[in-house]
């Protein structure tokens, strides 16, 4: 079942200045969907549209298979959300913050204890929120989002500003919620490294357009395809001919060759081939092709 679906979603804050253009999101039930994009690419705007915080005159947003405009209350009752910095009443305790949402959501009284336990804030629940650290606030925001045991969690940069420990804690919590409670999670981030360990699906947004959408493994495949090594030899022309005979033809650049490779065994074979033909190798340099660079490449293009 598709939990979130948008069809040609456009949005402009002022006429002619499109912030989002033809967005076709598809988030499947049970997935952890990472919504990636550089700052200002339109992630928060998308999330605000999904939650009805920005006006959308068209009927092109569906959550749980229902049109958001026609079924807002039902959809929101099944959705927990955290947008940018958590919205908290700083003068109140963590418990009071949860109680406000609990009453509006008409959730069970013991749901507060459960949520506090889940985010490990039980001992600090009586403290005023203004005395909380950023990580604690983020966890309280998550507890509020989890209060009514939602089927969908929409989180906007949930690890933004957290220290490495905080990031790991939130990651583990989200994985647990997804695996044990079957919650579908849609989370945005501007850093792939922050979420690559937990996502099953990815959508990459660049300048308001969805430039990649698919399973995380699809992105890994893209990574393999773009793996290259730069080789500088005593005779680049000859080396190129030798490599071309057995492998994909390299590109001859100014001072070196750019060779595409599939795995490390292929690098060893190329090296051996060149040595056997008496070509001196001056330099072999692997090019950065980690996912972060792929992400940068996609968003740049």
């Amino acid at each position: 079942m598709t939990i979130i679906e948008t069809q040609n979603l456009d949005f402009a804050f002022s006429k002619g200045d499109l912030v989002l253009e033809g967005l076709n999101l598809k988030v499947e039930q049970g997935s952890i969907y990472g919504f990636l994009g550089p700052n200002g690419s339109g992630k928060t705007t998308t999330i605000r549209l999904l939650l009805g915080l920005l006006p959308n005159s068209k009927d092109n947003i569906k959550l749980f298979g229902h049109n958001f405009k026609n079924d807002r209350i039902n959809i929101l009752s099944k959705t927990g959300s955290l947008i940018e910095q958590p919205s908290l009443y700083e003068h109140l305790s963590g418990f009071d913050n949860l109680e406000i949402t609990r009453r509006i959501r008409n959730a069970n009284k013991n749901s507060i204890d459960k949520a506090l336990e889940l985010v490990d804030l039980k001992t600090a629940s009586g403290k005023k929120v203004k005395e909380y650290s950023l990580g604690m606030k983020q966890r309280l925001g998550l507890a509020i989002a989890l209060l009514s045991e939602p089927e969908l969690l929409i989180l906007d940069e949930p690890v933004n500003g957290l220290d490495p420990n905080g990031i790991i804690e939130i990651r583990e919590l989200l994985l647990k919620l997804n695996k044990e409670n079957g919650i579908t999670i849609f989370l945005s981030s501007h850093l792939l490294s922050e979420i690559e360990k937990i996502v099953t699906h990815l959508g990459v947004l660049s300048k308001g357009k969805l430039v990649f959408q698919g399973q995380y493994n699809d992105l890994k495949e893209l990574q393999n395809k773009s793996a290259t090594i730069h080789i500088e030899t005593s005779d680049n022309q000859k080396a190129s001919e030798i490599i071309s005979a057995k492998f994909q033809a390299p590109s001859l650049l100014n001072s070196h060759l750019m060779v595409h490779y599939q795995d490390k065994e292929q690098i060893a074979a190329i090296c051996k081939l060149l040595v056997e033909t008496n070509i001196d190798i001056y330099k072999m340099q692997l090019q950065n092709n980690d996912l972060e660079n792929i992400f940068l490449e996609i968003t740049k293009n």
Binding site: I73, S87, Y89, R105
Partner: peptide, 14 residues
Amino acid sequence: KNNTWKHIFTLPIL
């Protein structure tokens, strides 16, 4: 002050 409108508007209440 607490920027909490956005939270209220994402709750299931008219």
